[in-house]
Structure formats: C-alpha cells, structure tokens
C-alpha cells in the first residue's frame, strides 16, 4: 500500500476532483457572481495604467474636489477628484493593486508560518505542542487590530510593517486549524502505512498528512484574505498603514475624512471599493466551503 499524495494522483483523477469541486461551487450562485467580480477587480488592478487616463498622483490644480462625472480641461473625472485635485478613479484602480497584494502576502506569510507550527504541534505533541499552542493562545488573547497597531508602533508605520503585523496576528488561526486536522489524521491507516514503509517525520508531516488537511485551511485562507484587506485599510485609516500619497484605499479614506460633509464622493468611493472587494472574497469563501466541506455538502 503506498501513500496517497498529490503528486501520485494521476492527472485524470485530479481533473475529476476539480469537476466535482466545480459542480458544488457553481451551485452557489452568489459565489459564481463573486468569482466574476473578483476577476474584474484583479484585471482592473493589473491593467490600471491602461484603464485610467490620469496617473494616481497627478494633481489637477484647476479641478480641486471636482464632483463625479465632471469634465475638466484634462479629460473626464468619472468619480470626481480629491482635495488636491487627484483623479479618484485612477487612485482606486492603482489602490486595488495594494489591497490585493496585501491580502496575498499576509495570507502567504500567516499560512506558511501557521501551517508549519501547527504541523509540529500536532505531529510531535508533548512539550512541543504545549509551547507552540500556549504562544498562539497569548497572541489570540489580544484583539487583532490592537495587537497589529502595537506591532506597527514598534516597527514604525508603513505598508510593509502593517502586513507583517497582521500576518503575525493571523497565523495562530492557521496553526490551530492545522493542529486539529493533524490530530484527526495522524492515527489513520494510511499514515501508519507510510510510517511502516519507512517514511521519516518530515515526509510524513508535509507529504502524507498535510495534503489531507487542506480543505479547512483553504477556507480560512479566503477569510483571512478579506480580513487582511479590511485590517490594512483600517490601519491606513488610523494613519498607521500605508503613508500618503500612496493610493491605498484606507489611507485615501483617512485623508478624505475632513471633507465628508462637503464632498461625499471623496469618502464614498474608496469605502465602496473596499466593501465590494471584501464582499466578493467572502462570497467566494462561502462557495469554497460548500464545495470543500463534505459535512455541509447538500445539507
């Protein structure tokens, strides 16, 4: 009996697996729409320079706080301009790059560290488990945004530090999930078989057990992706994330705060961009959970 790992699965089986996944995913209409919306946001981020006629930092001094749809000497401002005359649409398009980039980096960091810690804790048990999980408990005892704020205060404000701080705060969730999944898998027959066949700890942990723990991790990763976008925007809003003039959505909101009663568009559009992106990712997360979690299938 050989161990079942991803690499051993023939391509046909994998295609069948994907077909099954897609069968359940497309049942959720919201998730399919969200996938389309997310793809559009991704394309907008990639092709931002082609889609906007203005640069994100170009200031049009004759069009300060111009309302949406207004036409200036330099072309149309579809979503208006901000207090120093920058085109809001252009800033939102370029801002999408930051938000998506932040989400991806935070999730990758939190996922890789959390999974490794969770694997070690679950696989070895004993004092390794106790030490790792206690540290995770301590991190979880602090409200995430507060801890991220304090980390940023230590590291200094800025987008990179904000990402590191949020990744540190998120990784206990991955560690806990991985540990729980490892505990339920590690006494199964296939793991025993691999062990008897002479696989070492590293191979058992990363090649045998880990691929079978992926479903909850993928769902958690989408959740963290949307939360990371929200939290980085929140840090930006508090002045601790990306610094001006970066067109990060939260930072844009923070700059726009003093104009809320005079120019609604300066505040409305960046927030709407955050909401739509986060909503799309959360809806996709719902779809993924329906498709990946066998307990909830067809319930």
């Amino acid at each position: 009996m050989s161990e079942v790992t991803e690499t051993d699965i023939p391509a046909g089986t994998r295609r069948a697996q994907f077909a099954e996944f897609w069968f359940y995913y497309k049942e959720n209409r919201g998730a399919v729409i969200a996938l389309v919306v997310f793809a559009l946001i991704l394309l907008a981020a990639i092709f931002a320079p082609l889609l906007s006629s203005h640069g994100p930092d170009t200031q049009f001094r004759d069009a300060l706080l111009a309302p949406p749809l207004s036409a200036g000497a330099d072309g149309h401002f579809w979503l208006g301009t901000d207090a120093v005359g920058r085109d809001i649409l252009a800033r939102l398009l370029f801002g999408a790059r930051y938000s998506l980039f932040v989400g991806v980096v935070v999730v990758l960091l939190a996922l890789s560290v959390g999974v490794i810690l969770g694997l070690f804790a679950g696989w070895f048990g004993g004092w390794v488990d106790t030490v790792i999980m206690r540290v995770m408990d301590i991190i979880l005892a602090f409200p995430s945004l507060l801890l991220a704020l304090v980390f940023v205060a230590v590291l200094g404000p800025g987008l990179v530090n904000a990402m590191i701080a949020i990744a540190i705060v998120y990784q206990p969730h991955f560690a806990r999930l991985t540990r729980a999944a490892v505990l339920s898998e590690k006494n199964r027959d296939y793991v025993m078989a691999a062990q008897v066949a002479g696989a070492g700890n590293m191979r058992l942990m990363f090649r045998t057990v880990l691929p079978n723990c992926l479903a909850p991790l993928i769902v958690q990763a989408t959740l963290s992706f949307s939360n990371a976008i929200l939290d980085v925007a929140a840090l930006g809003f508090l002045g601790m994330g990306a610094q001006p003039p970066t067109p990060e959505w939260g930072t844009m909101l923070s700059e726009a705060r003093e104009f809320i009663l005079r120019a609604w568009w300066v505040v409305t559009f960046p927030g709407l961009a955050i909401l739509i992106t986060v909503l799309a990712i959360n809806l996709m997360g719902d779809g993924l959970r329906d498709a990946l979690d066998p307990k909830l299938k067809r319930s």
Partner: peptide, 17 residues
C-alpha cells in the same frame, strides 16, 4: 454578509454624512 464585509470606519463616516 454585506454587514460582515463592512469596513466599519467607512460605514461610520457614511452614517455621519
């Protein structure tokens, strides 16, 4: 789901407006 995805700092500003 919209509420769950809401950036509340923006939501607060909208309500103030």
């Amino acid at each position: 789901l919209v509420g769950y995805s809401m950036p509340i700092f923006w939501w607060g500003l909208l309500l103030i407006i």
